[in-house]
């Protein structure tokens, strides 16, 4: 139980934060940030632990968002069934992209580029196809009732994302402590050495991308359910690919709390920048960029690593 104790504490802290978020603005900001954290947990598993840096997690996020919306709007599928279907669809997209790119031995910048290309192709297709509603996008009919997975107010959504983020943290910890997790990190560190020790690198990477895609898919489906609308640039746009990788990198790559810490920090920083310099258009983006540069320069291991080093130094100073 001990390895999970810190997760329980963080989950309780999140719950306290959520129950204090009475204003709609704060709750809304938190929902968006935690949805991004969830997408970041997907990216973190493949990128942080597996060392396979994807620039196209929008492919998984978008596939799930569209399946969730289209299944309900066009085929009248029950909202919860659509949610499950959407997550499964993202996992399936993960299998296809993973098989094609890992089978071909793509890694490093080539893997990053091919995933970006997949996401962009899906964006263009979604914008053109009839079933997705084309450029107009797809609206989920407003029907606020728990039986439609729709709620009045932001709070219920916040609780749902928090539960899912907690499950993502637990899943990440479980991976860390499993043979699969050890193999995944071994493949990241040195693929040839891992193979010599009996690790089936292709299989490990495929398993990782499927779990990764499903987690990011959860975020996509939830996003569609929360805003009740998707279009091609929301679902498959580069913004979510970047958010999904920025959160774990800023928070701490390949750590259990990294994506959550990073997503909350980036969100808080974005809001603060907006408040300070709201009148100058684009200034918050410049500040956002500056923060990324700063994190990469000062804390290669993210905010979590920075905190760990800070406390270690203090303890050493006290002793």
């Amino acid at each position: 139980m001990r390895p999970y104790l810190s997760i329980v504490i963080v989950a309780l802290a999140l719950a306290a934060l959520a129950s204090l978020a009475h204003s709609n603005t704060l709750a809304n900001s938190l929902v968006t940030a935690t949805i991004i954290a969830l997408a970041g947990y997907g990216w973190n598993l493949l990128g942080g632990y597996g060392g396979q840096y994807s620039f196209g997690h929008a492919a998984f996020f978008g596939a799930a968002a569209y399946v969730d919306a289209v299944a309900q709007a066009r085929y009248g599928v029950n909202a919860y069934a659509a949610f499950v279907l959407a997550t499964a669809a993202a996992a399936l997209v993960g299998v296809v992209i993973g098989y094609l790119s890992f089978r071909a031995g793509l890694r490093g910048s080539y893997f990053a580029l091919i995933t970006l290309a997949f996401a962009e192709v899906m964006r263009v297709l979604a914008n053109a196809a009839g079933i997705t509603g084309g450029a107009a996008g797809t609206l989920i009919r407003l029907a606020p009732s728990p039986s439609h997975f729709q709620f009045v107010g932001r709070q219920p959504y916040l609780w749902i994302v928090l539960v899912l983020v907690t499950l993502a943290m637990i899943a990440t910890r479980a991976v860390e402590r499993s043979r699969f997790g050890a193999y995944l990190v071994a493949v990241r560190e040195n693929e040839a050495a891992a193979r010599a020790l009996g690790v089936d690198a292709l299989r490990v990477k495929l398993q990782a991308i499927v779990i990764s895609a499903a987690l990011t898919g959860l975020a996509g489906a939830l996003y569609a359910q929360y805003f009740l609308f998707v279009d091609a640039s929301i679902a498959f746009g580069p913004w979510i690919s970047i958010e999904a990788l920025a959160a774990p990198i800023v928070g701490g790559l390949g750590t259990v709390f990294g994506p959550l810490v990073g997503a909350l920090a980036l969100d808080g920083f974005g809001e603060a920048a907006h408040a300070v310099a709201g009148r100058t258009p684009g200034i918050e983006l410049a500040l956002y960029g500056a923060l990324l540069v700063l994190v990469v320069a000062v804390a290669r291991d993210g905010l979590q690593g920075l905190a760990v080093r800070f406390f270690a130094a203090r303890r050493a100073g006290a002793a």
Binding site: V185, A186, R188, E189, N190, A192, A193, A194, R195, A196, L197, G198, V199, D200, A201
Partner: peptide, 24 residues
């Protein structure tokens, strides 16, 4: 058989240029 399957059969090797998993 690929390297990993041969390891399963019972062939182990070391590398002349050591290949540690540096982060572990």
């Amino acid at each position: 058989l690929p390297a990993n399957a041969r390891a399963v059969r019972g062939i182990g090797r070391t590398f002349q240029i050591t290949q540690p998993f540096a982060g572990m």
